[in-house]
């Protein structure tokens, strides 16, 4: 490995660090100020988190769309599919059930099955 090669590798990590630090700082800032409309804050946080995960994959794990990386990228795509189905499906079903539940006030007491106020 030659000098220029080393420097370009190190520079990749430093660029990744700068981007990730900016996105992290952005997330912490958004959650602590009232600049953004309240219900929009979680959406903004998720966008920042997804962007940062992308930065980590590209600059730290060196996942690219290059031909020799197709297997890795396809495996990642399948993993993302499963994660989205799991988390999205769980939240969707459980919120639907909450919405269709009988109010739980009188019969069971307020804290019987916490989480469904």
């Amino acid at each position: 490995m030659e000098g220029a090669d080393v420097w370009s590798s190190v520079r990749t990590y430093l660029i990744g660090l700068a981007l990730a630090a900016m996105l992290t700082a952005g997330s912490f800032w958004i959650s602590s100020t009232g600049v953004i409309y309240g219900p929009g804050v979680p959406v903004a946080l998720i966008v920042f988190a997804l962007a940062q995960i992308g930065v980590h994959l590209v600059f730290f794990l060196h996942l690219t769309t290059a031909p020799d990386n197709v297997n890795n990228a396809m495996a990642l795509a399948f993993g993302v599919l499963v994660v989205v189905l799991l988390i999205g499906g769980t939240l969707w079903i459980m919120m639907h059930m909450n919405a269709n539940m009988m109010p739980m006030g009188a019969a069971h007491g307020p804290h019987m099955h916490g989480g469904h106020p």
Binding site: V82, I87, T90, H113
Partner: peptide
């Protein structure tokens, strides 16, 4: 990736239970 899927089940459980503070 399998390990991340394991974590995603824990994230899903947290998402469902995050308001269940039982007072």
């Amino acid at each position: 990736l399998a390990d991340i899927i394991t974590f995603s089940t824990l994230f899903a459980a947290y998402g469902v239970l995050k308001d269940a503070t039982a007072g």
